[in-house]
Write a protein that binds this DNA or RNA. Structure first.
Length: 194
DNA sequence: ATTTTCAAT
């Protein structure tokens, strides 16, 4: 008889966890970050499905030092020891844009790892003081930063959520809010100061 | 035009 020791099901987000954290018109008090990795083969990006997953921050209400989601993400990237002779594209879908410090850390990582490109799609804009400058620094380091639209929400649902075969159900005003945030992000990225 | 948000008034 077969022991049921099939490889552990890949870690997927619970449906409600996804919705509660990625809905773009609310302000969740935590951050989730879903990531995927592709490798450049000729002129084609090939998915590395084994390097797909998600992380979330550790809040001040939990034991130990608080830690933003981006730092856990950087830990995972480093643990993969990506081959410096190849080229990789990381894509992350994050419920809040990175704070100033995390943006700086990501920018430094990109500066030290020219074999890695980064694309960020964010559900909402974290806009405490300094965040705009952080995002501009990150963009200047080569990262692409954009707001999640229904296309990205649906992609996340299909890729990272334990949806049991159910299709993504957009929430009210998803498109309207996304469009507004997109315009706001463009203004932030084009600003010269603050 | 929307704001206090990777918790704890």
């Amino acid at each position: 008889m077969e022991a049921s020791t099939a490889p552990r099901t890949r870690c997927l987000l619970d449906e409600n966890t996804f919705t509660e954290n990625f809905m773009n018109q609310i302000r969740a008090r935590k951050t989730y970050l879903c990531y995927k990795v592709e490798i450049l083969d000729g002129d084609t990006w090939v998915p590395l499905d084994e390097n797909k997953g998600f992380v979330h921050n550790k809040g001040a209400n939990q034991p130990g030092q608080p830690c933003h989601a981006e730092l856990y993400f950087l830990d995972r990237i480093r643990s993969w020891n990506l081959d410096r002779g190849l080229h990789y594209r990381l894509t992350c879908f994050i419920s809040w844009t990175p704070c100033h410090t995390c943006a700086q850390n990501l920018a430094t990582f990109l500066g030290e790892n020219s074999h890695v490109s980064l694309r960020i799609f964010a559900s909402r804009i974290y806009s405490l003081p300094g965040c705009g400058a952080g995002l501009r620094t990150l963009q200047a380091a080569g990262a692409q930063i954009a707001i999640m639209t229904s296309k990205e929400f649906e992609h996340c649902w299909e890729t990272f959520v334990d949806h049991q075969g159910r299709p993504f159900q957009p929430w009210d005003d998803l498109e309207v809010v996304s469009q507004h945030l997109c315009e706001k992000l463009q203004a932030i990225l084009q600003t010269q100061q603050n």
